[in-house]
Amino acid sequence: MLIITRKNGQKIMINDDIEITIVESRNGTCKVAIQAPRSFKIYREEIYVQIKLANLMGQESSTDSLDQASNLISKNKTSLNDAVVRTDSDDEIVVNDKKPFKTRVFVKKQQKPND
């Protein structure tokens, strides 16, 4: 592992296209600015670890437990959080592109006909 000491305002270059600037460092806290191509994924480590752990737990679900959970929903013994929407059709996704540089997606439930 490479360890480099930098002063406030100084930079580190990685390859030709990643620039890391120490913006401010005091009292054990360091503010870092990272300039990198948008294709690079940059995360705080704790969030990355959290998702990794969630994924790991996600692949341990068994078919039995899923059947039970699905039965819980279909028998309506308990409701999906704030919703009891079940539909045979595909998810409806509505999008607008108002925000620059981003695709905004609304995941909407299917409108139920009034009965």
Binding site: D82, V85, T103, V107, K109
Partner: peptide, 10 residues
Amino acid sequence: IYFEFEYVID
């Protein structure tokens, strides 16, 4: 879609 609130993602 199974949740009542709007799930909006960028």
